[in-house]
Simulated scan of single mutants.
Amino acid sequence: MTKEDVSEPVEGDVVLGCRSRLSSHHRPVIHQVASAPMPSDCEFSFFDPSEPKCREVLLDPRTTIPELFAILRQWVPQVQKNICVIGNEILKRGCGVNDRDGLTDMSLLHYCCKAGAPGIGDAETAASFARQLLALGADPNLRSRWTNMRALHYAAYFDVPQLIQVVLQASQPGEVDATCSDFDFGTALHIAASNLCISAVKCLLELGANPAFRVSDYTVSSNIFDYSLSTM
Rank of each mutant, 00 (worst) to 15 (best):
F47S: 02
A155T: 02
P66G: 05
F129I: 03
Q32I: 13
I86E: 12
R27N: 15
G121C: 13
A193Q: 05
F183Y: 15
D184E: 07
S23F: 04
T125C: 07
E43A: 12
S20V: 14
P52V: 06
L91C: 07
V76P: 10
N88E: 02
L68N: 00
C197G: 06
E8P: 03
R93Y: 12
D41E: 06
T187S: 06
G174A: 12
R19V: 09
V220N: 12
N148H: 06
A200F: 00
I90L: 11
F69W: 09
C112A: 15
R21V: 13
K81Y: 01
I90P: 03
T64R: 10
A192I: 00
I191W: 02
C54V: 05
S228D: 08
A34L: 13
G137N: 00
F213C: 03
V76S: 09
V167N: 09
A130S: 04
D182I: 05
A188S: 01
G174T: 10
F44D: 11
Q172K: 15
V29Y: 02
V167M: 05
V76N: 07
R145T: 07
N195V: 03
A209R: 01
F225Q: 14
C18W: 07
A117F: 09
S7L: 09
R131Q: 11
S50N: 06
L103V: 14
M106A: 09
L207F: 07
T104R: 03
T187N: 05
